[in-house]
Design a binder for these strands. Structure first.
Lengths: 181, 181
DNA sequence: GCATGTGAATAGGTTCACAGCC
DNA sequence: GGCTGTGAACCTATTCACATGC
């Protein structure tokens, strides 16, 4: 497949595709284009998707349950090895084969199972505390659903999921009136 | 509050704050800084947040219910005026004071209630069809939870919520090893 | 011949620094 | 004196265009 074809799939240009890929190496063949198979393998390795990541979910509320049931996670190599909640009613409950633990056990489980990522699906009021404890216990990245800006060391990446902001982005684009992008 | 102080709250610099704000007007007072109150009002108007947006939710599954219960939505001016699902079991069920309608009624409701935004919380397989119908019925923006790239006219903004991609972004940052950002 | 990979040219965005106003 | 608003300098990213290799 040529850079031209690749570009038409994303929202970009042929030159952009070539420049971007050239940052990581030279994966194409002149006159021929790129092998989808090879690109896939090489990019998955670069992005760190060629392994299974150990994930824990903190917060067994609605968002937590929606996430947990989302089939794509497992399929894409994210293995939810534990769930935590502070509600005594929920502790001990099983979701599939995964048990809900007391939040108190967070550090122990993260260390024991060598957890990579934490999904924070807790109220804003406790998000920072949980994040601190998770980082202290050795977690390497955080997906944050709580509507607060959590502070962690620079070495720990955080991705924020902020649906209100995304709705607001829509509101702005509509208000502004201009083209969709 | 000075641009310096504002910058320290976001993840940015004083010069950046001043340049960005100057794009929309000159809201500060020299020697003094910016009035939070005035900034808030002016920016809310620019972003289109000084009104209530009519929203419908399509898909009354787990993601849909998590969203619907999310208190921030109403508080931030997004009023979910209708829910749709194709499952006959769910049709007629009430969530709070909002009834779940058959997806067939999508166009009728969008037109009648002058709906602005659609939240697409449906399986990937039907996302495009629903999007087409919503756009045809006059919706002005789409928040898309389905893991597909939906195609709509350029004039209709789409915001994609793609949790797998956000996890993958974490994986990349961790793999690359560099600083969090 | 065809499409990559890459320097050169261009455009876009960020930082600097200071005149102007409070 | 302090801080904004903004042109100028700088830096980064995108686009162009072509030599290189299949």
């Amino acid at each position: 497949m040529s850079s031209e074809q690749l570009a038409s799939h994303g929202h970009t240009t042929a030159a952009q595709v070539r420049k971007d890929l050239s940052h990581f190496g030279s994966f194409g063949k002149r006159g021929l284009g790129y092998s989808i198979e090879e690109l896939s393998v090489r990019l998955r390795a670069i992005l760190g998707l060629d392994r299974v990541w150990q994930v824990v979910l903190v917060g067994a509320g609605r968002i937590g349950s929606a996430l947990f049931e989302y089939p794509d996670f497992k399929m894409r190599g994210y293995d939810c090895v534990a769930i935590f909640d502070s509600d005594p009613e929920k502790i001990g409950v099983q979701w599939g084969t995964t048990t809900i633990h007391s939040s108190e056990r967070l550090e122990a489980v993260i260390e024991q199972l060598d957890v990579d990522l934490v999904i924070l699906a807790v109220p804003a009021s406790v998000a920072q505390e949980i994040a601190d404890r998770a980082v202290e216990a050795g977690v390497r990245g955080i997906l944050n659903f709580a509507p607060v800006q959590i502070k962690v060391p620079d070495s720990i990446p955080v991705e924020d999921v902020n649906l209100v902001m995304q709705l607001e982005a829509l509101s702005f684009k509509i208000t502004r009136g201009g083209a969709g992008e």
